[in-house]
Design a protein around this nucleic acid. Structure first.
Lengths: 355, 355
DNA sequence: ATTCGAATAGTAAACCTTTTCTGAGGAGAG
DNA sequence: CTCTCCTCAGAAAAGGTTTACTATTCGAAT
């Protein structure tokens, strides 16, 4: 069943049917009504491939993420999809699993399916591969950094703001020995987070201990491994900041395994503020990077390029600290309060600090 | 740039190029080589819409899930994608968010994009809507139940096996007061899990207390709310089984908030065995339903229909108990052991039971 | 030498739309 | 009443591929 069937049924030409479907204003209201009726009766819907083939417009936005099993990304995908659909686009999601081979498959898929724009949310560097997209003038959005070309916009995340809040929060509680578990340092975003951390430490007058800056990989397991390294070190920090929440959850787990308590023995701060932070034990203090903002800006940027309405080169994304219960005073301070919390009441609740 | 450009460059007709690309055996090796070279030099790739339009084959498999932010689903999607790609298919994922309106959008998208087969992994009932797919003879896969028509396969999950193992495990530890937090009971799968639970209790000679069968909604919040209900009841169960892991994590959180300990005061068993169960505090005993199995069977079933090689009507999916540390003896028993674990060593590790 | 058949390249139709261009009909102006 | 202009429906081309059909070449069989 195709547009011709509808045309016959409504007693009009296929051109009229097409125009009706696409809401072209020059079609007579009476005829349009006949057409819509025929469409409903036949349960007709247009063939998107034929449509795309002739019009050159697929109304498809690509989204490349690194890992779909990291809860951060599904939340991002959800937002991206919602906003894309709101604007009449469909989305095509692909994940790289940090594998350059898969990255090139992703790109190929975007090309084959003729995505009109692609958001590259891998938080990393795969530029050489992405040249294929640039060559074909497909608008793109990157996070943090990207080639300076027309058709490319950047989502500039202000890591420093949130991370500084985190460090200040810890400093205010009395922490001076703060470790950082980074993401894979080949990722821009991971580097930016580390340097925002270092900078913030300096701002707070805290010395940087290189042994306490450990490379993780943004996974649960990475958090666990990094914590093992930290625990076997000569001196323990009193607080750990993590490059993402999954890492932080891994840290919490390992700390628990080691018989230590959060935040009594160690304060922990995550990054991303995924939904799960609300139910970890104790709930995780984290630096929020809004998925909705990220998604909205990405879609808007791509739309602006596609529909050639003055796109911006950069879109700013805020981060901010969300204090929960995984941060508290460093061990050895406030012994009076600590004594009080040793009864039936559970750890974090009684003594964790709130801003 | 199109197939014609390639043809000119390789000095052959477009038909030969097409045949080369599609590995049609009747093309002369020498020419094929020339064609491949031209393709590489031009960086050509075929237009998938044009291809699909004329051949009628999109090589696209649809996957409809209920919720992308529930970690179970990304794990499932990942598996589905991997196996689909292995077999030369691409996938089109859509989530319903338990909203019938979104479900019909999902279906429409599947139809418009001409998915060759659709796996409906919502674990629920939306059959009337899915008739549109059935009408057009699109092969489908459902979990547990589905209309009995040609072109439709079922993934029969053996809930009873895993859940019985769970109940037996609890019974062996001495539990007699076991609650169950179900999913939304309009879902087949949720119903099946409850009835498998009830049946298992009976098998173990444990009385069923209807007050302890509480409806949740497969979310963290649902787990928290259900636990609140449980806690305000006149009598507390000593163990809780949950219809999924997210619910269980919600329960653990609420139990922690209430100042109770897992498993000392309450044993908890989840369902699904998502990756996160390994790092909850304590690690969650859960009933495993393999995402890989589910994904593989779904893809295989769809392939069998599409490629019309004898598809099966049913594919069996196993479940099995994975014991971790959220289950232990009920409170009030084994006081001797309990006393021992009150020192620095952390709760679960010392006294939780392993099979 | 002629015919036949196999192998394989090329031609053209088909897939289903959108969109440009053409043309019909009606209204308004002279 | 005729002419012009405007509105809007229809015809037809275009988009990039696959594939059925046709054509060519070459070798083998008669």
């Amino acid at each position: 069943m195709d547009i011709r069937t509808v045309a016959e049924r409504a007693n009009v030409s296929i051109a009229t049917v097409s125009r009706t479907i696409n809401h072209v204003p020059t079609v007579n209201a009476k005829m349009a009504k006949r057409v819509w009726e025929a469409i409903r009766e036949l349960n007709y819907f247009p063939n998107s491939q034929a449509r795309a083939l002739v019009s050159g417009r697929t109304r498809l936005l690509g989204l490349i993420v690194s890992e779909i099993t990291n809860p951060f990304f599904p939340e991002l995908i959800q937002g991206f999809e919602d906003i894309a659909v709101e604007n009449g686009y469909e989305i095509l999601v692909s994940s790289t699993n940090y594998d350059p081979r898969r990255m090139s498959l992703c790109i190929r898929r975007m090309l084959e399916r003729k995505a009109e724009g692609v958001a590259v949310m891998t938080f990393g560097i795969e530029e050489p591969l992405l040249d294929q997209l640039a060559e074909r003038n497909i608008p793109m959005v990157f996070v943090d950094q990207g080639p300076d070309r027309p058709g490319i916009s950047l989502l500039k995340v202000d890591y420093h703001h949130g991370i500084r809040q985190g460090v200040q929060h810890l400093a205010a509680l009395g922490h001076r020995n703060i470790a950082f578990i980074s993401g894979p340092i080949r990722l821009h975003s991971a580097q930016s987070r580390v340097s925002a951390f270092s900078k913030s430490l300096t701002e707070c007058g805290i010395a940087i201990n290189q042994d306490w800056i450990i490379q993780g990989d943004h996974t649960l397991e990475g958090g666990i491994t990094a914590t093992e390294k930290l625990l076997t070190g000569s001196r323990l920090p009193t607080a750990v900041m993590c490059s993402n929440d999954l890492t932080a959850i891994g840290v919490m787990h390992k700390v628990y395994r080691a018989g230590l308590r959060v935040p009594d023995d160690l304060s922990i701060i995550g990054f991303d503020d995924i939904h799960l932070t609300r139910v970890t034990i104790p709930p995780l203090t984290s630096i929020q990077m809004s998925r909705t903002e990220l998604a909205r800006s990405a879609v808007n940027a791509l739309r602006a390029h596609v529909e050639s309405t003055t796109p911006h080169r950069e879109y700013r994304i805020d981060t901010k600290l969300v204090v929960r219960e995984s941060t508290g005073y460093p061990p050895g301070t406030m012994q009076d309060l600590r004594g009080l919390s040793a009864n039936g009441e559970h750890a974090g609740a009684g003594k964790s600090a709130r801003h």
